[in-house]
């Protein structure tokens, strides 16, 4: 997903929530309740749990609860996968740029600054790769099994 798409998604979420709340409000205020099954009462046992109201306050409360639940799920599953993917992708990019830097440094054998910057990039590449490996290992130890390519 591109930077622009990611931002549109992020900005789209609050807008979507606002629209959802607005939609709920209109339905609760002026809408008509339709009973499924032509008004016949179902034969089986009734639904478990507390009866949820349909007024704007109850709907807002349910929306807030669902939002919190979604955020919790994201932080425990997808987010950790995304973090590893981002870390490994960064490590790959750092090491790719390091190759270019050291290739240029090879053309300046007598110049210390070039050699030092190449060595620094090698270290940064190695550290980033370690972070990627540690993230994937931690994720797998927490029960995840999806492989992340470096």
């Amino acid at each position: 997903m591109s930077v622009t798409q990611r931002l549109l998604t992020r900005w789209g979420l609050p807008l979507g929530m606002l629209l959802a709340v607005a939609g709920c409000g209109a339905r609760a205020g002026g809408g008509r309740t339709v009973t499924p099954g032509n008004g016949r009462v179902p034969d089986g046992p009734g639904p478990d749990g507390q009866q949820e109201g349909n007024n704007i306050g109850d709907l807002k409360h349910r929306l807030d609860a669902l939002t919190v639940e979604q955020a919790e799920k994201a932080s425990t599953s997808d987010a950790s996968f995304d973090t590893c993917e981002d870390l490994c992708s960064l490590a790959s990019s750092i090491c790719s740029v390091k190759e270019k830097m050291c290739s240029i440094a090879d053309q300046h054998p007598g110049e210390d600054e070039y050699q030092q910057l190449c060595r620094k990039a090698e270290l940064q590449c190695s550290e980033a790769e370690d972070s990627c490996v540690a993230c994937v290992a931690a994720r797998q130890s927490h029960g995840g099994s999806t492989a992340v390519s470096k």
């Binding site: 960064l90 750092i94 940064q124 980033a128």
Partner: peptide, 16 residues
């Protein structure tokens, strides 16, 4: 290139 690697290393630190 050096600035780019530095930027990406900062991003790695943020994610760790």
């Amino acid at each position: 290139y050096g600035r780019s690697v530095e930027m990406m290393s900062l991003l790695v630190e943020e994610l760790e």
